[in-house]
């Protein structure tokens, strides 16, 4: 087994072209190997010291969040907290301070777990993943990227360099809530992100995506119908649609029936919190803790 620390992006890409797997925080990769799920890859290239991956750049239309940005940064960065609050909500819930300190956005996305917390926020914000290899750079939609639990369509030599997020129109807000049995050190039983844009008192766009109720992050469809309705109506419609469209499994964390019920509750609360933010209300990150037990709205 070999290990090297990449000192430049090119370095990292070359190592990957030669077959190395990237390690950022290692909170999925190393932990996964310790749980006896499998050995570490034969060759590892550490990408955690690359400044190129650690930047958050606000462009005219798109904000570029480096794949190496840690959850600790995401939850406190002013741009993310103000503009893409749902990502900050999600990052603030990941693991413990130690997990957030080294765990990265790129690692979360590329690990491809249906329980990843930043996934649903990225979906509702319309993000794309920037993938780079020695030869090429391309952007893919997240829908295309995630192909199943723990699998992505990225080629083995492709590094995720950034997540590209369209800047938000005025009167917009987003939020992420998740069901938690305790107030820290949790894994999503279910979670929901919502992004809402308002036109006065009514909803002009709403997107909702769900965590841990399908093989990959699931975007709720058919919400066009709520355009023009009140926030409350939109929240209720999103809840119903979320419960209907979810295809949850039963496992040791919850039964399918309970997941189906609570995903509706999470969707309603996410839409509600997103709309309140869109109206200018300040709800601290993360919504879960700001609003109390079990994410009570």
């Amino acid at each position: 087994m070999s290990f090297a620390v990449a000192t430049s992006l090119d370095d990292a890409l070359a190592a990957m072209a030669a077959g190395a797997r990237p390690i950022a925080g290692g909170t999925d990769l190393v932990v996964g190997s310790r749980q006896g799920k499998g050995a570490l890859p034969d060759a590892i290239i550490a990408i955690d010291r690359l400044p190129e991956l650690a930047a958050i750049e606000v462009g005219d239309d798109v904000t570029r969040i480096g794949a190496g940005v840690t959850h600790a940064t995401l939850m406190t960065d002013a741009t993310v907290v103000d503009q893409f609050s749902s990502i900050a909500d999600a990052a603030a819930l990941v693991g413990s301070p130690a997990t957030r300190n080294v765990g990265t956005l790129g690692g979360n996305v590329m690990n491809g777990s249906p329980a990843m917390d930043t996934g649903a926020p990225l979906v509702v914000l319309g993000a794309e993943a920037e993938l780079r290899s020695v030869d090429a750079t391309r952007s893919v939609s997240l829908d295309e990227l995630w192909t199943g639990p723990g699998s992505t369509s990225a080629n083995a030599d492709e590094l995720c360099t950034a997540l590209l997020i369209p800047n938000r129109p005025a009167a917009s807000g987003s939020a992420y809530v998740r069901l938690e049995y305790r107030r820290a050190m949790e894994i999503a039983v279910v979670g929901a992100a919502a992004a809402v844009t308002l036109d006065g008192d009514t909803v002009s766009t709403v997107r909702v995506a769900l965590t841990a109720v399908a093989p990959t992050i699931l975007e709720v469809t058919g919400l066009d119908a709520v355009v023009g309705s009140t926030i409350d109506d939109a929240a209720v419609a999103a809840a119903t649609a979320a419960s209907e469209q979810a295809t949850p499994i039963s496992d040791l964390r919850a039964s399918d029936a309970y997941r189906r019920h609570t995903i509706g509750v999470m969707a309603r609360r996410a839409v509600d919190a997103a709309a309140r933010r869109a109206m200018g209300e300040t709800i601290a990150v993360p919504v879960n803790r700001a609003l109390g037990v079990g994410a009570v709205a």
Binding site: F3, V5, I23, G26, T27, V30, V31, R34, Q35, G36, I44, A46, D48, A72, G95, S96, P97, A98, T99, N101, V102, M185
Partner: peptide, 29 residues
């Protein structure tokens, strides 16, 4: 076995990490 208890917490450049699940080679420098 896997980042769940915090007994192994150390600081890396002043920030906490779970040293049980951190590769020693990654801490060089």
């Amino acid at each position: 076995d896997d980042c769940e208890c915090g007994a192994c917490m150390v600081l890396l450049d002043g920030q906490p990490i779970n040293s049980c699940s951190y590769l020693a080679v990654q801490a060089q420098g």
